[in-house]
Amino acid sequence: MAQPPIRPDVLTRFQTQNDIPMAKTPLSVRMPEDIDEIVRAKPNRTQWLRDAILEKLDREGELPAQETSPIDSSVTKKTIKPIRSAPKK
């Protein structure tokens, strides 16, 4: 039986990102098929999803305070900036 192909991100998958410790287990969520197709087509979908989640938490005022969080504003602006801005309302 043939071995499944090796993922191209095998060496970088689930690694610490920019000196920010990552959770031990990844989050997982199912999406409607049409949205899933759009997200999976993103060139760097993992970072895009992180950016989207952080952007939403920031808008809701739920990001931890800078002095207690490994994600402070200087790190966020440099390493976790959104790939694309949210549309203006």
Score class of each variant (00 low, 15 high):
I35D: 01
S28W: 11
K42C: 07
K42F: 12
A41N: 06
A23G: 09
D51A: 15
P26A: 10
R50T: 15
P64R: 01
P8C: 00
D9Q: 00
A52G: 00
E62N: 03
D9K: 04
E67Y: 10
P8T: 00
A52E: 04
R13E: 01
E60R: 02
D9E: 02
A23S: 10
E62P: 00
D58L: 08
V10S: 07
E55P: 01
K56D: 11
P8S: 00
T12M: 02
Q66Y: 09
V29Y: 08
I53F: 14
I20W: 01
Q17S: 07
I20H: 05
R40E: 11
D19S: 14
W48R: 03
D34E: 15
R59N: 13
I35V: 15
E37Y: 12
I53Q: 10
M31L: 15
V10C: 06
V10R: 11
T46S: 14
P64F: 05
N44C: 10
V39S: 09
T16C: 02
A65C: 07
V29R: 12
L27T: 06
K24Q: 06
P64S: 05
E33K: 12
I20M: 08
E33Y: 06
S28D: 09
R7N: 04
L63P: 06
L63M: 11
L11I: 03
D36R: 14
